[in-house]
Design a protein around this nucleic acid. Structure first.
Length: 463
DNA sequence: AAACAGTGCGCG
DNA sequence: AAAGCGCGCACTGTTT
């Protein structure tokens, strides 16, 4: 992909300058905490490793591998579990060179040794990639991650040394361990501004599906709740926060990215057990589905027509209705956009970039959306950096994560900054780019003075 | 010693 | 016919 329109070139040029300033500003790190945390985590890992090595499985492992024994080796782990211990259900990786030993596969093994092994692996990830990775890059108490505009195929950004765009947050324990190290400058506070469902909005700018635009524009409507109702056969009242969450992440988003019913059905079905999904009155969803004639998952065999009464068949029908009845215009756009690419071998994004070369169908559908969504953030960041300078504010932009901005703000500037950011990111941006045909909105999170990045809390943006 | 492929895992 | 997109980083094990 190369910048094509003059506007596209200009955006990257100004973006590079603004991001260089962001890099220069840097993020303050609580180096004392970091040091102590590394020490503690190392001790914890040592203890767990010691316990692990006492057990029978470890002894067997040492007998088999002798001096080559390496408890970090996934290849060895797989062979010990599935070949030497005879545990059933080992699955080979795509290249068939070793067994799959990712967290999900191993959870299915359900063995105390494996549980401890996973726990150690998680802590080692936290220690090696994050705690030590951050410490290695700190200079005079500040971290200066790079933000690149020249590395990705979609013309999103990337970040490295360290990567600021994948700091743990979903796992609460891990999030706390790492994010406690990220602090604001003395007497100031961290502020994070996120676009709400930016990629969904930008996709709508391409396909212009009126039903989707309605979902985005009407705060009363809720796409993920509606799909939870369909996937799990619930009434609006019966949908819980959890069932909505899994409908969103196992069906809606995967469908937007080009997934298909087989994998969606598997994920939705597994979620019922692993997340203990129930109706609002507490009926387990498997029981609830059984009452409506769905008693099993099905074989999930692509070459086989799904049988009646299987969840697989149900989701196949949900998928069909999703594209043919709920979002037919979106569906048509996908087909048209792809066939246009097949005809000419390239495509032009809303932000003026050309994507060219060999691309798979799902890539053709996704690249323009992903790129343009990030360009909304980049344009806003450029404008914000300029406005802050013009107004002689002390606020500093210190990072960016695809659809969000992190700033280090003095409390006396907080309200002004929130108002300014909202104006730039929603009103000014939409004014600048007339192809944006849906309202954009942002959410703000603020950390207390003296707190750290873990302590962020939602705040209302003043009018 | 350096480079490479493969696997896994963190984020949007 | 294919079957979810984009990244960076650590680590194993092999090849150069």
């Amino acid at each position: 992909m190369i910048p094509y329109k003059k506007q596209a070139y200009k955006l990257l040029h100004q973006g590079a300058i603004a991001l260089a300033q962001v890099e220069g500003n840097g993020i303050q790190i609580d180096t004392d905490y970091l040091k102590k945390c590394i020490f503690k985590t190392e001790k914890k890992i040592e203890k767990l490793k010691h316990k692990l090595e006492q057990g029978d499985v470890a002894k067997k492992w040492k007998r088999v591998y002798g001096w080559k024994t390496n408890f970090n080796s996934n290849d060895q782990l797989g062979k010990i579990l599935f070949d030497h211990m005879g545990i059933e259900g080992g699955v080979l990786t795509k290249s068939e060179k070793q067994y799959q030993t990712d967290e999900k596969s191993l959870m299915a093994v359900n063995h105390p040794f494996v549980k401890r092994h996973l726990q150690i692996k998680k802590l080692q990830k936290a220690l090696a990639t994050y705690l030590k990775g951050i410490q290695r890059e700190v200079v005079d108490g500040f971290l200066h991650p790079f933000f690149n505009l020249h590395t990705t195929t979609t013309f999103r950004s990337s970040s490295d040394s360290p990567n600021f765009q994948n700091i743990p947050v979903r796992d609460k324990g891990m999030g706390k361990l790492i994010r406690t190290a990220f602090i604001a400058r003395p007497g100031r506070q961290l502020v994070e501004l996120d676009y709400s469902q930016l990629e969904v909005c930008i996709a709508a700018c391409y396909h212009k599906d009126p039903v989707m635009i309605e979902y985005i524009s009407d705060p009363e409507k809720d796409m993920h709740r509606d799909m939870a109702m369909e996937c799990y056969l619930l009434s609006a009242k019966q949908v819980t926060k959890d069932s909505r969450f899994y409908a969103k992440n196992c069906f809606v988003f995967p469908q937007f990215y080009g997934d298909w019913y087989i994998d969606c059905a598997r994920a939705l079905w597994e979620a019922i057990t692993t997340a203990d999904l129930k109706t609002e009155k507490g009926t387990p969803l498997k029981e609830h589905l059984a009452k409506q004639g769905i008693t099993e998952l099905g074989n999930l065999d692509p070459d086989e027509k799904p049988r009646k009464g299987t969840f697989e068949r149900h989701i196949q029908q949900v998928e069909k209705r999703f594209w043919q009845e709920r979002f037919p215009i979106y569906d048509k756009w996908k087909k048209h956009w792809y066939s246009k690419y097949l005809g000419q071998g390239w495509m032009l994004t809303k932000t003026g970039f050309i994507c060219q070369g060999f691309m798979k169908r799902n890539e053709v559908i996704n690249y323009p959306v992903q790129g343009s969504a990030f360009h909304c953030l980049l344009w806003s960041l450029v404008r914000l950096v300029k406005e802050i300078k013009k107004r002689k504010m002390k606020t500093l932009i210190i990072g960016q994560i695809h659809d969000s901005i992190l700033a280090d703000v003095p409390p006396e500037e907080l309200d002004d900054f929130l108002v300014l950011a909202q104006d730039v990111m929603t009103t000014q941006l939409v004014k600048e780019w007339d192809w944006i045909n849906v309202p954009l909105s942002i959410e703000a999170e603020v950390c207390p003075v003296g707190g750290s990045w873990v302590d962020k809390e939602d705040v209302e943006i003043p009018k």
